[in-house]
Amino acid sequence: MVTWPWQRDRAAARTLKLRSRGDFGDVSRVDFEELAPDIDTFLGQAAYLQLGYFETLSQLIAPTPELSHKESLSLAAGAALIKHRGLVKLIRDRHDDPLEIMLPFREPLDAFRRETHGARPLETMLTVHITAGMLDDFYLALAASYGATGERAAEILRADDDRQALTQIIADAIASDAEWKSLLALWGRRLVGDTLLIARGALGPQTLDAAEEKKVEPVFTDLLAAHSRRMSAIGLDA
């Protein structure tokens, strides 16, 4: 079990609002008073997550034989790096050191990447598609808590992720081999719990009372619904 460094003083209460975007469609807004983490935690985690996606996808390029697949991986990796650099610039514009802001999250997020790294390239591609999709949506929801800084972060996170070609690679594998379909469906289901733990760890309080849990539940319900749609779109059952 990882210990998250979110227990910092927060000067003022914040409101977390889940906004409609992409996979979410028409979702109701849900407010979380005093549950959003401090701005350094939000930016540090979000920036390091994008760096992790870049690293994971980059590592897949060399062992991938097909040139077209290499190109798809490079595009997706490049998109993650662009988001990372955008968030790093945002941190610098706040006169903070990006390395200091990200460092507390290196160990737990690296552990998350190790635990969700597949034994096969297709599993790892699915890992990035599923975990990045869920966490980008969740961090977009968090972004509503931070005023103008949050709006800039949301704009960065909404940028094209260039993962469409990766999902096509996965869909083609599923269509050509029923074994891949069952294996990847199982892998996708396994990813959900680990990813929701990361999202839960991004909230401010270490423990939630019953009323706070009730506020959190609709957002996680929406995250799971969006996950199901992502899985269905590539031919997998959630």
Results as ranks from 00 to 15, higher is better:
residue 2 V to D: 09
residue 3 T to K: 12
residue 4 W to T: 08
residue 4 W to D: 10
residue 14 R to A: 01
residue 16 L to G: 03
residue 21 R to L: 07
residue 21 R to W: 13
residue 22 G to D: 05
residue 25 G to C: 00
residue 31 D to L: 08
residue 36 A to K: 00
residue 36 A to T: 00
residue 39 I to H: 02
residue 39 I to T: 05
residue 41 T to N: 07
residue 42 F to L: 00
residue 45 Q to C: 12
residue 47 A to D: 03
residue 47 A to S: 08
residue 50 Q to W: 01
residue 55 E to N: 15
residue 60 L to F: 10
residue 64 T to E: 14
residue 64 T to S: 14
residue 66 E to A: 15
residue 69 H to I: 07
residue 71 E to F: 13
residue 71 E to D: 12
residue 75 L to I: 06
residue 78 G to M: 03
residue 80 A to L: 07
residue 83 K to W: 01
residue 84 H to S: 07
residue 85 R to L: 15
residue 90 L to D: 04
residue 91 I to Q: 11
residue 97 D to A: 05
residue 105 F to I: 05
residue 108 P to H: 01
residue 114 R to Q: 15
residue 118 G to K: 08
residue 120 R to D: 15
residue 120 R to G: 05
residue 120 R to P: 04
residue 121 P to R: 11
residue 122 L to A: 11
residue 123 E to W: 08
residue 123 E to R: 09
residue 125 M to G: 09
residue 129 H to I: 14
residue 134 M to I: 13
residue 135 L to P: 02
residue 138 F to E: 04
residue 149 T to R: 00
residue 150 G to N: 04
residue 153 A to V: 01
residue 156 I to R: 01
residue 165 A to P: 08
residue 168 Q to P: 04
residue 168 Q to L: 14
residue 169 I to Q: 12
residue 171 A to H: 14
residue 171 A to Y: 10
residue 172 D to C: 05
residue 174 I to Y: 07
residue 177 D to P: 00
residue 183 L to N: 11
residue 184 L to A: 02
residue 184 L to G: 01
residue 188 G to Y: 05
residue 188 G to P: 01
residue 189 R to A: 04
residue 189 R to F: 00
residue 197 L to N: 08
residue 198 I to H: 00
residue 206 Q to C: 06
residue 216 V to Q: 10
residue 218 P to G: 03
residue 220 F to K: 02
residue 225 A to P: 02
residue 235 G to L: 02
residue 235 G to R: 06
residue 236 L to V: 02
residue 237 D to Q: 10
